[in-house]
Design a protein around this nucleic acid. Structure first.
Length: 316
DNA sequence: TTGATCGAGTCGCTGACACT
DNA sequence: AGTGTCAGCGACTCGATCAA
C-alpha cells in the first residue's frame, strides 16, 4: 500500500507521485533594486506628441528621494536657444521621472516583441535593456537569464493547466467574443470575470481558460467549462453562419445569455470525450507557448487528488 | 530537463445590498 | 428569483528556487 500519494491524470493514465518534502532552506528573495527613469516627452501647444526618450539616472538613488511618478515641467524659454522659428508652434519639453525596476522594463519589452522570431527578439531585448546596465556583458547575462526563467514559467503553467484540465469533468469548450457596441476590452474582461466568478460561487461552475487575441487583434476568451445540469443561463441555440477563418458555412451552438451580455458565444460540447478535451487543451497551450499569456482559473481546481494506492493497482 | 515546494502578493470569495 | 456590484480579507497562484 502506498500511503497518501498525489495522483494526477496526464490525459491517458493516472500517475501517482509519492509525497516528498523539500527541506532545503531557501535563500530569502531579494527585493529588486529600484531604478529611476527619466522620460522626455516633446509636445507642442497644438499637437502633443508621444515621442519619448528615456534615460536612467543614478542606479543607486534612494527610493525615497523621488515620488513614484512625479513630473517636472520645463518651459522651453529656459532652455538653450533652439532653432525653432517664431512661426513654428511652441515646443515644450516635459520630463517625467518615475521609479521602476529592470524586470518591469524587461516585461514591457518582452510583450512588445511577441511577434518577433527568437533571435531577433533576444537582440531587441538586449538593445532595449542596454542603457540600464554598465556593460554589454551584464546586459546579455541579464537578458539570457530572464528569457530562461520566462521559458521555465511557461513550462510550469503548462503542467498546472494540463493536470487541472484532465482532473475535472469539463463539459464545454467555450469561446466568448465581445461586441464593440456592448463593451470595451477592459469592461469585457472585468464583466466576464465577475460573471463567471458569480456562477462559480452560486452554481458550482468550474472553468479554466485564456485570453486570446485573433490575428485581427480582437480579444476572445477560450475556456473549458464545467456547467452542472440545469444551471445553464439563457438558452442554447444552433446557428448557421460563415466562418471567417475557414471561409465555410458552419453550425455553431450559441447561448442567448452570453450573446446579449458580451456579444458572441460558441459552446462546443466535450462531455467526457478525452480526445476533444485533449484538442481543446492543446489549442490553448499552443497559444500560451507563443504569448506567455496567463491562465484564468476558477478557484478550487486541484492539480492532484490525494489517495492511498493499492500495490495491485500500480503498473510499472 | 523536469518536478516539487515555498513565499509574496494578487485577486477570488463572501456577504450584504441594489436593481430589474 | 436572478443578476450586478462592492469592500475587506485571506486562500491560492505564480514565479523563484531547490533537487533529482
Amino acid at each position: 500500500m502506498y500511503r497518501e500519494t498525489k495522483i494526477y491524470n496526464d490525459g491517458s493514465h493516472y500517475i501517482a507521485i509519492p509525497p516528498t518534502t523539500n527541506k532545503a532552506k531557501r535563500s530569502k528573495r531579494i527585493k529588486e533594486e529600484l531604478i529611476t527613469v527619466v522620460e522626455e516627452e516633446f509636445e507642442t501647444a497644438t499637437n502633443p506628441t508621444s515621442a519619448v526618450n528615456t534615460t536612467t539616472e543614478s542606479n543607486n538613488t534612494p527610493a525615497e528621494s523621488f515620488d513614484a511618478e512625479s513630473e517636472i515641467r520645463c518651459d522651453t524659454e529656459a532652455e538653450p536657444i533652439d532653432e525653432v522659428g517664431d512661426n513654428e508652434p511652441k515646443q515644450e519639453k516635459r520630463k517625467k521621472v518615475r521609479q521602476t525596476t529592470r524586470s518591469e522594463i524587461f516585461n514591457t519589452l518582452y510583450i512588445e516583441s511577441i511577434e518577433m522570431p527568437k533571435s531577433k527578439r533576444r537582440k531587441f531585448l538586449i538593445d532595449g535593456m542596454r542603457k540600464y546596465f554598465q556593460s554589454d556583458k551584464q546586459t546579455v547575462g541579464y537578458v539570457n537569464d530572464k528569457l530562461e526563467k520566462k521559458q521555465r514559467s511557461i513550462i510550469c503553467r503548462r503542467i498546472r493547466f494540463t493536470r487541472k484540465a484532465y482532473m475535472h469533468d469539463f463539459n464545454y469548450f467555450v469561446t466568448l467574443t465581445y461586441n464593440n457596441e456592448l463593451h470595451t476590452e477592459a469592461s469585457f474582461k472585468k464583466k466576464l470575470k465577475t460573471c463567471l466568478n458569480n456562477f462559480h460561487n452560486r452554481k458550482d461552475w468550474k472553468y479554466m481558460g485564456i485570453w486570446e487575441r485573433s490575428p485581427k487583434g480582437r480579444l476572445h476568451f477560450h475556456a473549458l467549462f464545467y456547467i452542472p445540469n440545469g444551471t445553464m443561463p439563457g438558452e442554447l441555440f444552433t446557428k448557421r453562419d460563415y466562418n471567417l477563418s475557414t471561409f465555410k458555412m458552419q453550425n455553431t451552438v450559441q447561448n442567448t445569455f452570453f450573446n446579449s451580455r458580451f456579444g458572441r458565444s460558441d459552446f462546443e460540447e466535450v462531455d467526457k470525450n478525452l480526445l476533444r478535451i485533449g484538442n481543446s487543451v492543446a489549442y490553448i497551450l499552443k497559444y500560451i507557448e507563443k504569448t506567455g499569456e496567463k491562465f484564468v482559473y476558477s478557484r478550487g481546481l486541484p492539480m492532484y487528488l490525494i489517495s492511498d494506492v493499492e500495490e495491485d493497482d500500480v503498473a510499472t
